[in-house]
């Protein structure tokens, strides 16, 4: 009984400390993301399943026509431009009260540990999220080159059997 009481207190304190640490970490990550977004570098997440990679990038308010995707060897480059339009009202006498949203050039470059197959790469932009599916170029194993006049490999294997 005494032990339970004696140990419960530091655990609770540790739990509180852990929670504070988690909140601090989350707020620092959020701060970094916000800072990156204002520098034209929106945050992204990458998932993978059986060699297919899924990339989601936050591009709120960006139109399809102003985004460009390029692949070169193992690099994926996402570039674009965001223009803010203050729709939903008559444009007369607009006065800025608060301006936090970034406008201008956007660019992110990603490097993968494989060459990207651009023919299998497709992307969509929905609700301000750019979703990219990409696949690596199919792995090429060692190939044997037959010398002219040499018998086919299958025949020699069949003979040895």
């Amino acid at each position: 009984m005494l032990n339970a009481f004696a140990y419960s207190k530091p655990n609770r304190a540790l739990g509180t400390f852990q929670r504070l640490q988690d909140e601090l970490n989350a707020s620092l990550v959020e701060f970094r993301n916000g800072l990156m977004a204002t520098q034209g570098s929106p945050s992204l997440n990458v998932w993978q399943k059986e060699g297919v990679y899924l990339i989601r990038l936050e591009l709120a308010g960006v139109e399809e026509d102003s985004v460009k995707l390029e692949t070169f060897k193992n690099e994926l480059k996402i570039s674009g431009e965001r223009q803010l339009n203050h729709t939903g009202t008559d444009q007369t006498g607009i006065e800025v009260i608060k301006s936090e949203r970034h406008s201008g050039a956007i660019e992110r470059q990603l490097q993968f540990p494989f060459h990207i197959d651009s023919s299998k790469t497709h992307a969509s932009l929905k609700n301000g999220i750019l979703e990219i599916h990409l696949s690596p170029v199919a792995e090429l194993g060692p190939t044997q080159i037959r010398i002219e006049g040499q018998k086919p490999v299958e025949d020699s294997a069949a003979k040895s059997n």
Binding site: E58, A60, H86, R101, N127
Partner: peptide, 23 residues
């Protein structure tokens, strides 16, 4: 997450625009 927001005032209204990607 506090969405980054622009607030504008026009002659007839206030306009609030907030970035909430995915919403």
């Amino acid at each position: 997450t506090r969405p980054r927001t622009d607030i504008h005032e026009t002659e007839s209204a206030y306009v609030i625009q907030a970035d909430m990607p995915g919403v």
